[in-house]
Amino acid sequence: MNFLGEVARWFADPAHWQGANGIPTRLEEHVLMSLIATAVAALVALPIGLLLGHYGVGGAIAINISNIGRALPSFAILVLLVQLVGIGAIPAFIALVALAIPPIVTNSFVGMRDVDPELRDAARGLGFRESRTLLRVELPNAMPVVMAGIRTAGVQVVATATLAALVGWGGLGRYIVDGIANRNFVEVFAGAVLVALLAAAAEIGLAVLQYVLTPAGLRSRIKQERQAAVSIQAQAEPAR
């Protein structure tokens, strides 16, 4: 039997669809961990990036935080953070949140800075308070870029959560790590397929969210932003 046939058999085996090491359980762990980590990172990072961008202060910090974040090997960071906090779900969670914060801070800062200053003036001229200017004028205009940051962070979290299998956590990375340990390459391959599919689903899901949250009139900008993001050296995304 050829190799891919064995992989197909692995997927067809009902034993792999139940119990604590079954696909549904591992998938649920991976998805929940990624969702919560990305959401918590957004809750921490968005206020920082949006406020710094609104007041136009701390630009050097906001930009450099993601340059540094980009440079750091996520595996080394994950392992060292886990050493600080201990083995298990919570340390992995903290590490994932820490890795997801930089791109969100930087993109929300850049997005806010790039809002046409005339719009800000107009809002002030209309008597908008600061908070209303920020939330009703600047944020909607900055949305394509802000959401691009969350998209980058989210996909990165899904990828890094795979590595968390190495530091005693579950998720889909378990199949790859355990498979390698046992020289069971069918399991390794199946796990890799699942992880790749989940990463693609995260990318597509967050792209849809980005589209939905961007005001209808600005949606044509999403594509432009993605192209522009590549050309601005500081913003190109690293692989995980």
């Binding site: 498979g179 890799a192 397929v193 992880v195 990463a199 693609a200």
Partner: peptide, 9 residues
Amino acid sequence: TIPSLALFA
């Protein structure tokens, strides 16, 4: 988009 560990695997 494919995480590196998955690509290696």
